[in-house]
Design a protein around this nucleic acid. Structure first.
Lengths: 355, 355
DNA sequence: TTGAAAGCGCTAACAT
DNA sequence: ATGTTAGCGCTTTCAA
């Protein structure tokens, strides 16, 4: 401790009067060590203040016990909650490198490259813009790869893809809008370089077509999936196209839409029906309560962690997973006032949440 | 590429017909390399698909270009937004290990130990429960440490502490409640093992005392800072103590309070005044609009990144920083209806947000 | 049950 | 301008 130099294994070995290997044995709980020796070494570890150096260990074992996570937008509660689920599950076994791309392809690519350079044991990628093939090229098959939302089927054996059931969700949302009596239904889509956006738009179109409703291009507009950006887009859309309902790519955008409507003195749902996607906590707090398509985000995050853990332990798993969604009808569509009892029930469920 | 083995520097060297050092030189942009050689090596890198191994490099340089971040609750927008700010600033230079403690001391300790074991170049700690001295012991002085919210002054020269101006904030909040005509003002505090909670409670008490108002213990209650937990606590508090206003530790709890009030058919602000802390986006979306104390969270996150970066470059910085707060008066206190113009202005500012 | 030696992939002196 | 050598801190054969 004299020179504040970080203690190494040989320091411990010296102090304990044993070889470096013995120290290693103790640290890695090797069975064949005398209790006496173990004690001695343990003692020495304390006195010199030894801390195992993960880097050195990783260099030789080839395992870093770290996994890389890439998300498009950390400030979207959807992703932060999912990330929490993932971290909770992996805690103790793995540390997480977290990269936020801000919906930017270049940053996504760099993040993935960085993480690979760091020899992460696995990669969890949310809403990537890079396609499956390109991804497989980049990542290879050496480490488990879990993607959430990827157009293609898993390519390498070590690749698991979870797809949220966007198509069904978008269809349910749009059908609900139709059933509520809305006729001129617009769609504020997310970034079209993400499969999620394309699928949700597709579901929207299918529902309209099936109902025999027209689906002019002018009613679909795509933006960065943020509250402000959506609000500004909707302001224009509302003035130029006069839709009587809007299905939004996600809840953040739907809330932006609520704001835009309010700004123009339009009443939701009477003048404008709104449906979102995700069911982030905010959705049950805004006024009116947002009708949306629920994705159990914390659970989805955990699932990513579970699958990653399983692959890392060499267990087999499904490689193509469809994550279910559920339409949550609240107040933002016509013909759907909630009853008093329903409101109370929602309140109670919010109050009952553990987190 | 034959055996899918990961290419190493010597592979590149072999392919290029140069020594391993030359490859290293090219990779590290060493000036004295012929363009010709550089080209050759670059070529070889491509063909063998070489990727520098960060671990090996770190082992010898002693720098990992990674920094560890520990937060108490990732699903609180306050922290996810701050984290995004931090990541944005550090992106390109450093990768972030993110640990979420779920407000748990043991998990906090383990996270810090893990990160140190991983030889992070720096540590950013939010709302820790570990005290300054203990922390200094754990972390030492070898790497920069940035803490947000720590009771003590920075201990080691390499330690920077940012304190949000909790005392002022809490006092402003409480004074506003008093000025609004509320008399029986309760406080729903956060976890008392965090200095943040203690300071905010102190500010609350100071304001009451100064106004000559009583401040009985029964009006202060402490919980885990989550929406649901707060809502449940407030339900009891409301029934047992009948306060006419509540100052909450943070916005999540304030929103929980709004819910509890709604559940009991109390009108906010007429029957109950509520003030929060943080000004997370939700605060301007709930009904009524939440009066709160703003912390510029994204900026605060960036600031952490900046300070860390500065220390890492060896630059000097302030070591004790007081981060300012600002009372944002909205609708959740009596005697403060917002004017139409004010509402519109708020709407416009939300719509104008870039993210 | 413990020790000695080799080497993980890279950088940093020092030669050349 | 390029090559040689040593060694970062650890695990892993293999031998004792």
């Amino acid at each position: 401790m004299s020179k504040k130099r970080i203690a190494t294994m040989s320091d411990v070995a010296a102090h304990a009067g044993v070889s470096i290997k013995t120290v290693s044995n103790v640290i890695n709980d090797w069975p064949y060590v005398t209790d006496e020796t173990r004690q001695k070494v343990q003692q020495a570890i304390e006195t010199v203040g030894y801390r195992p150096n993960h880097l050195a260990r990783s260099l030789v074992t080839g395992k870093t016990h770290s996994i890389g996570v890439v998300v498009p937008d950390l400030s979207n509660p959807f992703f932060s909650t999912a990330l929490r689920g993932c971290e909770d599950l992996l805690f103790g076994d793995y540390n997480l490198f977290v990269c936020n791309t801000n919906e930017d392809l270049a940053r996504e690519q760099q993040s993935i490259a960085d993480l690979l350079s760091r020899s992460v044991d696995g990669l969890i990628l949310w809403g990537t813009r890079i396609g499956g093939e390109q991804l497989a090229n980049l990542v290879g098959d050496a480490i488990p790869l879990v993607t959430v939302e990827l157009s293609d089927e898993p390519i390498s054996p070590n690749h698991i893809n979870i797809n949220v059931d966007n198509l069904t969700g978008a269809r349910l949302a749009t059908e609900h809008l139709i059933a509520s009596g809305h006729k001129r239904i617009a769609h504020v889509a997310g970034p079209m370089d993400r499969i999620t956006s394309r699928l949700r738009q597709q579901g929207y179109q299918q529902a309209l077509t099936q109902a025999g409703l027209p689906c002019p291009e002018c009613l679909v507009t795509s933006t960065r999936p943020s509250l402000g950006e959506a609000a500004r887009t909707v302001l224009t859309l509302l003035e130029e196209q006069k839709p009587d309902a809007i299905f939004c790519f996600n809840d953040l955008m739907a809330i932006g839409t609520l704001l835009a409507a309010r700004r123009l003195n339009l009443r939701v749902p009477d003048d404008l029906g709104v449906v979102g996607f995700d069911d982030i906590p905010m959705a049950s707090l805004v006024n009116p309560l947002l009708t949306t398509v629920r994705i159990a985000q914390y659970q989805l995050g955990r699932l990513c962690g579970e699958l990653m853990g399983a692959r890392l332990r060499g267990e087999a798993t499904d490689r193509q997973i469809l994550f279910p969604v559920e339409l949550v009808v609240r107040e933002s569509c016509s013909a759907h006032a909630m009853t008093h009892a329903e409101r109370i029930a929602l309140l109670d469920s919010l109050i009952a949440t553990r987190y």
